[in-house]
Design a protein around this nucleic acid. Structure first.
Lengths: 196, 196
DNA sequence: TACAATAGTGAACGATCGTTCACTTTTCAA
DNA sequence: TTGAAAAGTGAACGATCGTTCACTATTGTA
């Protein structure tokens, strides 16, 4: 029985499964078992190829690490209107990790639960999560977490001729011009609503 | 000069930095260099402790892998109203990874860009991203990606006495009762809006 | 102050890793 | 169909890993 040689797609799929299941790359022994190799050199060659194609990365110490392309879990397809493509096209979709997609500075990024409806017309509802980056200068029309009158809320940040203004996205509330102090907790980089 | 021994927090911080920078755990040599150890046994003991505390995991093959607790990048704080806690309290915040927080079945989960305003009253705007899980039975009031009259859109899924109904969240449009066929592409598990 | 718990040192060893060299088999296109 | 490129085999070797055992230093506390 001529043991079937794996296709490239099969190899990639098996490797992805391993990485997802173990949160690490397989070792030489494990890669050989996974792919049905008998020689560790085959594993070596496979690593070389995967490195060349950008699925794994070799750092300064010469050790391998998975790239988002391999580790990522999310396939980014087109638009809702375009619907779901065929499985073959799915294979071609870009794979990414939400963390890397949304977070620039991990050490300065936080997740807060939204309370209040001050930004509801911007589609930010109570119970939503906001991904907030601290320690950055807000630009005009950025949504910020700000402390106003000893109370923290979400507002649009606007700097005009008269100074800084904080605008709600809700007709029930009025724009605010901070008089004494203005504390900006951080800038909202993303909004996340989780169902179920 | 009595080389300063590192505190536990310092060790954790250094390890986190390494993992973020390299996308892998340090080896023994690297861990020794990172922590200022001279004996590989110290590294061994540190791994043992990290395993016991759940920062790394030892799988069936006896190999170490980082857990979300170590690899995760997002600190989950309280609510917007509560504002930002002190740095000391921040240290205690739960660290999580967005991928693991939002994605249950990686192989069946996709990201689509929203087109159209059929769900705008549910806070889903054109340009938002929806995280869609395929191959699950939608429950009542789930938001689904459905094919209606050869067109894909987002709708609430509702099953009543008369059968299945698809409701928009926009007064401009009307509920739909599919007559011939109904294709459900998937169930919306999360909505993501990215700024900037 | 003393003493137990915690943290680190140092040597040793078999297993695995990462790589090189030389050779064979399979695939695919001219 | 044939010949080159791609893929796999097999042996070998120094480096690192993962672990054990025995010993020493530091720290917090009864």
């Amino acid at each position: 029985m001529p043991r079937r040689r794996l296709t490239w797609n099969d190899k990639l799929r098996r490797l992805r499964e391993f990485v997802r299941a173990h949160d690490r790359l397989p070792g030489y022994q494990e890669l050989m078992a996974l792919m049905g190799f008998r020689s560790s050199h085959s594993a070596f060659r496979l690593w070389t190829r995967l490195t060349r194609l950008g699925y794994v990365r070799k750092d300064a110490a010469g050790k391998l690490a998975p790239t988002p392309r391999l580790r990522g879990t999310l396939r980014m397809l087109g638009t809702v209107a375009a619907g779901f493509p065929s499985p073959a096209e799915e294979e071609l979709a870009d794979i990414l990790s939400l963390d890397e997609f949304l977070i620039r500075r991990p050490e300065a990024t936080f997740l807060l639960t939204v309370t209040g409806d001050s930004m509801i017309e911007a589609g930010i509802h109570p119970g939503d999560l906001v991904l907030v980056e601290r320690g950055v200068q807000p630009k005009n029309n950025d949504i910020v977490v700000a402390q106003v009158d000893d109370e923290w809320t979400l507002k649009y940040f606007i700097r005009d001729e008269e100074g800084v203004r904080l605008d709600p996205a809700n007709r029930k509330y009025s724009p605010i011009r901070p008089r004494r102090s203005l504390v900006i907790g951080g800038v909202v980089r993303a909004v996340i609503r989780k169902y179920g």
